[in-house]
């Protein structure tokens, strides 16, 4: 209960990974081939085989995660092992290569593998850090509740505007319908606010950007300063207050969207890179045996 994937079962898989690494280093140390260490020696082949099996097993996580009826361990256990074995893989692959690099298909496989591991490490970092920030930002409110609070503010604004002239009604209606957060992965990650609003000025109607509801607030401030009717001024003041509330709420939602996107985005690198790695790995193995 309540343990992260890293401390799962007293770090069982960390110890397995460390043992595996230690054995590999010891073997490399003790092995004394005729030629410089490389993938073609007996140890090189052995380490290469181990690394290949590890890569296939690591990629299999994507399958295990979705085999919901499987009783082979828990997904948390698999992920814990996935992380530690993935890190150990770097060492084993390095020892397999005998630290020989070049501009060739073999090194390509290694580079892709490193990218996969690095993106995975970033994923671990994100998984450990972000959830707490999501929780702090939400303050116990679910996303659906945030949305309903937003709708509530919009409908209250529109009712206040009903007591004012047409321009106010158009303003609040368009500010509500043109509020936009999120969208593409990029806009979610960057926390962009693509809201717009239709504003009537000097008899002209125009769609203007309204990030953070700034355009609405500016326009309302302008109207309030010109208003001479106390009742109208009070209504505008109420609209401003509601819009400031909305701004605060949008900021909170934007942060929520951004954090959630951060939790997902790294997978868009990790998974395709894994596919590429598998292709490069097959090419690496085939070419090695072809030119034996």
């Amino acid at each position: 209960m309540h343990e992260s994937m890293l401390v799962f079962r007293k770090r069982r898989y960390l110890w397995v990974a460390l043992t595996m690494s230690f054995v590999a280093i010891a073997a490399y140390w003790l092995h004394d081939p005729q030629e410089p260490p490389n993938g073609g020696t007996a140890l090189g082949y052995t380490l290469g085989t181990v690394a290949t099996l590890l890569i296939v097993w690591l990629a299999w996580f994507g399958v295990r995660k979705r085999r919901y009826s499987s009783t082979l361990g828990s997904v948390q256990g698999w992920l814990s092992a996935h992380v530690y074995f993935g890190i150990a893989l770097v060492l084993i692959a390095l020892l397999h290569s005998g630290f020989q690099f070049g501009i060739n298909v073999h090194t390509l496989a290694f580079v892709l593998m490193m990218l996969v591991v690095l993106s995975g490490l970033y994923g671990v970092y994100v998984y450990l850090k972000i959830p707490q920030r999501v929780s702090e930002n939400r303050k116990g409110t679910s996303r659906a509740e945030l949305v309903s609070q937003l709708e509530d503010i919009d409908s209250r604004s529109q009712r206040v505007a009903q007591g004012l002239s047409d321009e106010f009604q158009e303003l609040t209606a368009s500010a509500a319908s043109r509020t936009q957060l999120g969208g593409s992965l990029w806009s979610r990650l960057s926390g962009r606010d693509e809201s717009q609003v239709v504003i009537k000025a000097d008899g002209q109607t125009g769609v203007v950007p309204n990030p953070g509801q700034e355009a609405v607030l500016d326009w309302l401030a302008d109207q309030q300063s010109r208003s001479s009717d106390a009742e109208v001024a009070a209504a505008i003041g109420e609209l401003s207050a509601l819009t400031r509330n909305k701004r605060r709420l949008l900021r909170q939602m934007k942060e929520d969207i951004r954090l959630q996107a951060t939790l997902e985005a790294w997978l868009y690198l990790h998974v395709p890179l894994t596919a590429a790695l598998l292709v490069a790995l097959v090419t690496h193995i085939v070419t090695v045996f072809l030119y034996w």
Binding site: M1, E3, M5, K65, T71, S74, V75, Q76, W78
Partner: peptide, 20 residues
């Protein structure tokens, strides 16, 4: 009817889901 207990808990990759 599944062996291994509740699927929701077994499928949680980070150990966040718990039953008690």
């Amino acid at each position: 009817d599944l062996s291994g207990g509740p699927a929701c808990v077994r499928a949680c990759p980070t150990g966040a889901a718990i039953r008690m």
